[in-house]
């Protein structure tokens, strides 16, 4: 009861300012919109770990020094960085998805949803950016530190695990946080293949209500807030992990 009154109050107050949030009082449209927010947050929560893990793998391949491992990854990273994400998404959804459908015998058997393709494409796109940042960080680890670790008897993998990655991660954290903010913004491309994230849900509402300005204010505030939170968490992690006497 209290909740409904608050909604009505909000609608009438913003109505006096010339903004139209009347749809909030209806059940169906408000539900679509709320689901849009949840889908976007879910995408972000899923994409951050996916992109970090894939980025770490890519960076490990890039710095492995083995040509057969680093060459394909380098080619993938360059293509990903220098073509629009939307084109990659359309290519994956229209071409790769069709191949998968043919392979399993018909689109009805295809287990891959548009949601999967958004996670895969955006996740790998941001992973490519992470990989570049982490690679730069790994190369910034002083050669003497690596030599000392080798002298102590660490294997190549152990050096990567215990020496290079912990230091490189700290050095590349600002760039990684930057990429994560890009990731938050990139989730909107899901709109193109009908993943009902916040912009898609908002379009559903504003084609009925013609209240684009009101919706835009909320969407911009929403993304500003998420990015503020991501940047704050990044700063906090950076401070927590800071090594005394190393870097700034």
């Amino acid at each position: 009861m209290q909740d409904i009154n608050l909604t009505d109050l909000f609608v009438s107050l913003t109505g006096r300012l010339g903004l139209n949030y009347e749809f909030l009082a209806t059940g169906y449209e408000a539900q679509i919109w709320r689901d849009g927010f949840i889908t976007t947050l879910y995408l972000i929560a899923l994409l951050i770990p996916v992109s970090l893990v894939a980025g770490l793998l890519f960076a490990a391949c890039l710095t492995s020094g083995r040509v057969w491992l680093s060459t394909p990854v380098r080619a993938f990273v360059e293509i990903t960085r220098n073509t629009p994400t939307l084109v990659q998404l359309m290519f994956s959804f229209l071409v790769l998805n069709t191949f998968v459908s043919d392979l399993v015998g018909g689109a009805q058997n295809n287990p891959l949803s548009p949601f999967f393709w958004v996670v895969a494409v955006v996740g790998l796109h941001i992973a490519a950016l992470h990989a570049e940042a982490i690679r730069a960080g790994i190369e910034a680890v002083p050669a003497s530190t690596v030599e000392a670790a080798r002298g102590v008897g660490f294997s190549q993998l152990q050096i990567l695990q215990y020496v290079q990655v912990p230091l490189a991660f700290r050095a590349s954290l600002p760039a990684i946080v930057n990429n994560l903010i890009n990731l938050v913004k990139l989730t909107t491309v899901g709109n193109a293949i009908a993943v009902s994230e916040i912009t898609y849900a908002s379009i559903m509402v504003w084609t009925q209500r013609d209240n684009v300005v009101s919706m835009m204010i909320v969407i911009l505030a929403f993304f500003s807030l998420i990015n503020l939170v991501v940047a704050r968490i990044g700063l906090w992690v950076e401070r927590r992990l800071a090594v005394p006497g190393y870097g700034l």
Binding site: T188, V213, I219, F223, S224
Partner: peptide, 19 residues
């Protein structure tokens, strides 16, 4: 600067197109 640096390009294109 703070608001539009954090806004997705797609959202801004939608905004200008429909407004």
């Amino acid at each position: 600067v703070q608001i539009f640096r954090n806004a997705p390009h797609l959202v801004l294109i939608f905004a200008t197109t429909y407004i």
